[in-house]
Design a protein around this nucleic acid. Structure first.
Lengths: 140, 140
DNA sequence: GTTTATGCAAAAGTTTTGCAAACTA
DNA sequence: TAGTTTGCAAAACTTTTGCATAAAC
């Protein structure tokens, strides 16, 4: 994996837990919590600790291999899909959906003298499926 | 205050803590944490509890009097300025700045079948002041 | 008088940290 | 071997909750 090489070139040790977590994230390019990653790997790596998962996720965020999302309340999500995109959260069922908008790739590089390095856009509302359920409920 | 009347009309009791917190928020239209509000009011209301601040902020968010921001890590910010605007977070000093963009008032009402009710846009980068310091540091 | 909110303390949940042991280079 | 990282447990933080008391309507 190219990413492992990159991580090493940035001066970090390629430990077992790091390789395992990174491989899992690359094979599952979606949103994860530290706990969900830990759960997913605990069969294969029985003594992987949650603290290590947290520390690794922090490292991978710092180095730009994943993105942290703060769309859900009081819990960080880690997105292993780093292509620029937005997110939608359904306030009924809690589902999060990727939103692909062309203009998100070219955001302003400066606003009021502030250097802009990244943008996160979160949409909130009611998803397709919940709308259907709701409309059915209304119609009879 | 008109807002107090509104709160009452929505079926909520106008208790002392609620009036105090709401008045404070209206007089300080910026970003707060539950703790900062509690600190600001503890001289005037010595036995105001932090739990009540949290409960009141949740109520006010639900009723649309304030907006919750999740731009900082692992701590909710409450914005008493409800006019549609975005936010910028400096990754050096941690300062948060309001960003006023015209297009933020008319976001799409539907994306891929999902009903969009609200949008939060967070910009990340380096603020004016930190850029100056950094550029000075580079120049000698 | 009935209902709802408060304050306190305890609980719950997420994330971080200290440190001896284990691992990587 | 030197320097990092790990796992564990404990700590740190933010936020929520249960319940008797107090306040609002």
């Amino acid at each position: 994996m190219n990413v492992l090489k990159e991580l090493k070139e940035k001066g970090h040790i390629l430990s077992m837990p790091r390789i395992a977590i990174l491989r899992y994230l690359l094979e599952h390019k979606t949103h994860h919590t530290a706990e969900s990653i830990h759960k997913a790997l605990e069969q294969e790596y029985p003594n992987l600790s949650l603290a290590t998962v947290y520390n690794t996720l922090k490292l991978l965020s710092r180095e730009g291999f994943i993105r942290q999302l703060h769309i859900s309340e009081n819990r960080t999500l880690y997105d292993s899909n780093t292509k620029p995109h937005s997110h939608f959260l359904c306030r009924i069922c809690g589902k999060i959906e990727d939103i692909w908008e062309n203009e998100k790739t070219n955001f302003p590089k400066e606003i009021n003298g502030n250097l802009i390095e990244d943008v996160h856009t979160y949409y909130f509302g009611i998803c397709r499926e919940c709308r259907k359920k709701y409309e059915k409920g209304q119609s009879h």
